[in-house]
Design a binder for these strands. Structure first.
Length: 648
RNA sequence: GCCGCAGUAGCUCAGUGGUAGAGCGCACCCUUGGUAAGGGUGAGGUCGGGAGUUCAAUCCUCCCCUGCGGCACCA
């Protein structure tokens, strides 16, 4: 047998026979390591203890102390144990796939009756039983025919499909947890008892399409979360509870910002408090756009289908459009219009008015564009995914050569704004050419290169979404996360070679000939609605002072102080601070609690002492202590604090 | 759109085959209280909408709407 050399993390190496397994390596080191081992990293690859090593390698043996590997294995084995539990309880259920995801795993099943919440309890109990059996986990590589025959015989059609889909040359690996068997690329733990029985929980059942395709049958997916120990699980459940308190839908109610009702699904009724956030943000954006070299426009809401046909929306986007038919009396034909779902065609109409010269480029046309999209009912989510929203939209008409510099300029623009608004943690996704696309490969090469270059030059890394670009061009997505870690696309930048063509936009070049401009679709906040949702969750309702809808409440402690309270409010308002008086017949404790729950950043309490001294007692949201400050001083301080970051 | 779950007072929720309750909030009264809920009294509901079963439906059945969690979608 050939010899190979294994190199350990401490730098020592050892000659061993080829085909040795990490389990044998561990056993050669010590009995206790052999017992505690869960997996290995061999030449950088996460490796099952049972897989043979056939070439020179670096090797590290993992135990439960290696958190990343341990969690992956625990979750992966738990997924299998869950599937086994389900089949032990309901033998007719067909199994499909069950990967590890963030915090846990899921497994998709095909079963006639739905799983109920009570079923989850049964499955959990069965899983604990399986864990306690400490069944050994073993593995073998099979050839394709054997695997297919096996699954056909066992009436597991989804597994047959999965085996068939494994590319030639890749091993078809089987795993056994005791007698129960599953197709799996591994690695896995040594035995089921290595999964902590008190550190996992089945969370929910949901529908999911087989292979993620809505043309396929819907399966039932069970989600579980799993951790190294009970404490990890407790922490996670606690996090979920805390996240619930940050939910913008809950805070929207508590802070009296907005509501939705069933007569207008996916559309927002903004209350005075919420609308102040909205307009404050819009005023701020308007100033930024002016500084950034944009011109602001406004375009019609209801537009004849002819324009949508020309732009391609009628063909590609009609399912998502609100169609408005107008049946005029005496009209020979009724007109068919659509509420605009996007602003781009309108902006091209403005670009097309009059002849444009290359000297006009880049022309940056901005609009707080009110859009309506008929989003699928299941997609609606609070104010984050709605059917009526306003984009801080703009279209930059430029030459191909200007794509890179305009992209860089936009990313800098966006980064500054996100920073002003308190976001440091956002990511960039880059979506490149899809299979179905318009435009030549040469043009795509140029556009993708320009976008990627500009992003790097602006100092940002990005992840690539292969094939996820729009049919008309590649795009950048600027992504933020909500309270429970779900990603939301806010800003975007998309290169478009197609729409200028379809709507016949052109400019006169230096050479005196007509040329086609490129359009960059871009939005910074994305939509005000989604952005405000994210903003609320990011700050858990404690918005920065300048955005807070109610910045200051001045509360009387005794009614004899009321006149002075009103005077303080007037002084603050005159200085540009959003202040309200609370002279209700309530105790100061009550008022402080109520306005704290309402997330008012500053409470000024006024008793007779403050009246006499012309001071206020200042209390900041979240602080326990208070501070007495002279009236003039606090007015000046809060006025300065109320200024938006760009006006300071 | 698909799968599952839910919809009772402004909010959070309990409840029943014989047309309904709590806490908070709201109104009024008492209380003038020094930094996260002072006390009393009272008003407030077509039990999401429609149909069916029944002597009788908020409760059982069916359809629809909306919301929630996923999936799919997301120019």
């Amino acid at each position: 047998m050939a010899q190979i050399s294994l190199t350990f993390p401490d730098g020592n190496s050892k000659q061993v026979e080829a085909g040795i397994t990490p389990a044998e390596v561990a056993a050669g080191i010590s009995n206790s390591l052999a017992k505690k081992a869960i997996s290995a990293t061999v030449n950088g690859r996460h490796y099952d203890l049972q897989w043979p090593i056939t070439e020179d390698a670096t090797i590290a043996i993992h135990t439960m102390k290696d958190e990343a590997e341990a969690l992956e294995l625990i979750r992966h084995d738990a997924a299998h144990i869950m599937a086994r539990a389900v089949q032990e309880i309901w033998p007719d259920v067909k199994v499909t796939i069950g990967p590890v995801i963030e915090n846990g795993w899921y497994y998709d099943f095909d079963r006639e009756e739905p799983f109920t919440p009570e079923d989850l309890g049964l499955i959990e109990a069965k899983m604990k039983e399986i864990i306690n059996r400490r069944d050994p986990v073993t593995t073998e590589v099979w050839d394709r025919d054997r695997a297919i025959k096996f699954y056909e015989a066992n009436n597991e059609p989804y597994k047959v499909e999965l085996v068939e889909a494994i590319p030639e040359g890749e091993p078809i690996r089987m795993y056994w947890h005791g007698h129960w068997q599953d197709l799996c690329r591994g690695p896995h733990l040594q035995h089921t008892g290595q999964v902590p029985a008190d550190a996992f929980k089945l969370m929910k059942v949901a529908g999911a399409y087989w292979r993620g395709d809505s043309n396929n049958p819907m399966l039932q997916r069970i989600y579980g979360v799993g951790f190294l120990n009970r404490d990890g699980l407790k922490k996670y459940l606690n996090f979920l509870e805390e996240a619930e308190k940050r939910d913008h839908r809950r805070l929207g109610r508590e802070m009296d910002l907005f509501h939705l009702q069933e007569e207008a699904p996916g559309q927002i009724f903004w209350h005075p408090n919420g609308w102040r956030i909205y307009t404050t943000l819009q005023d701020y954006m308007r100033r930024q756009q002016e500084k950034g070299g944009y011109v602001e426009v406004n375009t019609p809401q209801v537009i004849d289908r002819k324009l949508w046909e020309q732009s391609g929306h009628w063909e590609k986007y009609q399912d998502n459009m609100f169609i408005v038919e107008v049946d005029e009396e005496h009209a020979r034909e009724k007109t068919v219009n659509a509420l605009k779902p996007m602003n781009c065609p309108g902006h091209v109409q403005i670009f097309n008015q009059g002849l444009k010269s290359y000297r006009d480029l880049p022309l940056r046309i901005a609009e707080f564009g009110s859009c309506n999209r008929y989003e699928p009912s299941g997609a609606l989510h609070g104010i984050m995914r709605v059917r009526g929203f306003v984009q801080d939209d703009a279209h930059i008409f430029c030459t191909e050569e200007q794509i890179e510099s305009e992209t860089k300029k936009f990313i800098d623009f966006l980064a500054k704004i996100y920073a002003d608004l308190g976001f440091d943690d956002w990511t960039v996704k880059f979506s490149d050419r899809p299979d179905k696309r318009a435009g030549s490969d040469a043009v795509w090469d140029k556009a993708e290169h320009a976008l990627a270059q500009a992003t790097e030059h602006a100092g940002y890394e990005f992840t690539v979404n292969p094939g996820e670009g729009a049919f008309y061009g590649p795009k950048l997505e600027f992504v933020l996360t909500d309270a429970i870690g779900r990603d939301w696309q806010l800003g975007t930048l998309q290169v478009d070679f197609v729409l200028p063509e379809r709507l016949d936009a052109n400019y006169i070049g230096e050479d005196g000939a007509k040329h086609r401009p490129v359009m960059l679709h871009r939005a910074t906040l994305g939509s005000f609605e989604r952005f405000i949702g994210i903003l609320i969750e990011e700050h858990a309702g404690k918005l920065p002072f300048w955005i807070a809808p109610r910045q200051v409440v001045v509360a009387s402690i005794v009614s004899d102080a009321d006149d002075y309270v009103l005077e303080v409010v007037e002084a603050l308002k005159a200085a540009g601070v959003r202040a309200e008086a609370d002279i209700r017949n309530e105790k100061i404790n009550y008022k402080v609690r109520e306005h704290s729950v309402g997330k008012v950043p500053v409470i000024l309490a006024i008793g007779m002492k403050e009246v006499a001294e012309r001071t206020v007692s200042l209390r900041r949201l979240g602080d326990k202590h208070t501070k007495v400050v002279a009236l003039d001083e606090i007015v000046a301080d809060l006025a300065a604090e109320a200024l938006p970051p760009d006006l300071r």
